[in-house]
Amino acid sequence: MGRLLRVPAAGAALFVLATMVPAPEVPPAAASAPAAPAAAAPGRFALAGKLIQGGLASGTVPRGTRMLTLEGKAIPFASDGRFIIAFDRDAPASARLEAALADGTTVSETLAIAPRAWDISRLDTLPKYPVPQPEFERTRPGELAQITAARSKETDAAGWRQDFLWPVTGRISTLFGSQRVYKNGEAGSYHSGIDIARPTGTVVLAPADGVVVLAAAKPFTLEGNLLMIDHGMGLNTAFMHLSRIDVTVGQRVRRGQPVGAVGMTGRATGPHLHWSLKWRDARIDPLLVAGPMPMAD
C-alpha cells in the first residue's frame, strides 16, 4: 500500500488487507490518550491532547461559562467544566472554540489542527466496488437508520473521562484513514476505524465505561454483527464483524468487561475486529486514543 496522495472522501470503507501496514505518520507524542487537563486559568481554556486530524482532546472551560461552541456548534460540558472535542480525518487546518460567559463576555481560541498523510492505494484498472445489488439497496436503508438512531442516543456514561483500552491486541491489518482510488480516479470511502487481525472467538473487551446503544439482532450487510457503545458526551465505539455479541441494548458495561468475540460476519475476508470511534460527526483514529498497540497475549 503506497502513501501517494490525499484524496478527500466521506463515509466508511470496509475492507481488509492481508499484509502488515506501516505505522501512521503522526508525532510520537500524539499516540496516547489525552490526559486530563489542568484547571483553566481565569479567562482561558485548558486543553490536553494533540490537536490533529483523527485526534481526540479534552479540556476545561473558563470559569463562568454558560455555553460552549466549536465552529459555531454547541457542545456539552460537565458540571466540573470538563469537555471533549475531536477532529475528523479530513478536518480543516483550524477550528474556533468559543465560550460564552455569564457576564456577557466571550472567550475564544483558534485551534490549529495538524494534518496527516494517509495511506492511499491506486487500483487504476478496477472499477469501484461493490456495485449496488437489489438486495443491498433494499436492506441497507433500514440498517443505516438503526445506526443513526443508536448514535443519536444520549446517555450519562462517563467513559469519555477514562484512558481507553485496546479491545483486543494483535496485528493491525488496516489503519484508520486509509483509502483506495479506483479506475478513472474514483475514490472509495476511507477506512473509518482500525482492523485488528485475531482468530474467531477472541474475546473483545469494552475499551471504556459505557451504555450499549446497538446490539444487532442479525448481521448487517456490511458490518456483520454490530455492537455500539456510548461513552458519553457524544463519544461512541462501534465493533464490527463480531462472531457473537454478549451484551444487550441498555446494558451498562465497564472498562475491560467482555462484550463479544472476534469474527468475520458481514463483508470481511478473514477474522478480525474492526473498531471505530466517533465523536458527533467526527471519525476518530483509535490508535490516537488507545495509544500504541501492546504485545498480544
Results as ranks from 00 to 15, higher is better:
residue 1 M to F: 13
residue 8 P to S: 00
residue 8 P to R: 02
residue 26 V to L: 04
residue 32 S to T: 14
residue 40 A to N: 01
residue 40 A to P: 03
residue 43 G to R: 00
residue 43 G to L: 02
residue 44 R to E: 09
residue 45 F to G: 12
residue 54 G to N: 04
residue 54 G to H: 01
residue 58 S to E: 12
residue 60 T to W: 07
residue 60 T to I: 14
residue 61 V to D: 05
residue 61 V to L: 07
residue 61 V to G: 09
residue 61 V to F: 06
residue 63 R to Q: 14
residue 66 R to K: 11
residue 66 R to V: 10
residue 69 T to W: 03
residue 72 G to S: 10
residue 73 K to L: 12
residue 77 F to I: 12
residue 80 D to V: 03
residue 87 F to T: 03
residue 87 F to W: 02
residue 88 D to M: 05
residue 89 R to M: 01
residue 90 D to F: 04
residue 91 A to D: 00
residue 97 L to S: 02
residue 105 T to Y: 01
residue 110 T to C: 11
residue 112 A to H: 11
residue 113 I to E: 12
residue 120 I to A: 15
residue 125 T to N: 08
residue 129 Y to F: 14
residue 130 P to G: 08
residue 131 V to N: 14
residue 134 P to V: 05
residue 137 E to L: 15
residue 139 T to L: 15
residue 140 R to W: 03
residue 142 G to H: 07
residue 142 G to S: 10
residue 144 L to Y: 02
residue 145 A to P: 01
residue 163 D to L: 01
residue 174 T to Q: 10
residue 183 K to H: 10
residue 184 N to T: 12
residue 187 A to T: 03
residue 189 S to E: 13
residue 197 A to P: 04
residue 201 G to Y: 04
residue 203 V to R: 00
residue 205 L to M: 03
residue 206 A to E: 06
residue 208 A to R: 12
residue 209 D to W: 00
residue 216 A to H: 04
residue 216 A to G: 12
residue 223 E to P: 09
residue 225 N to V: 14
residue 228 M to G: 08
residue 231 H to W: 01
residue 232 G to W: 07
residue 235 L to P: 11
residue 246 D to C: 04
residue 246 D to M: 03
residue 247 V to N: 15
residue 251 Q to L: 10
residue 255 R to P: 13
residue 259 V to P: 15
residue 261 A to M: 08
residue 261 A to G: 15
residue 262 V to A: 15
residue 264 M to V: 00
residue 276 S to P: 05
residue 283 R to A: 15
residue 297 D to M: 08
residue 297 D to P: 15
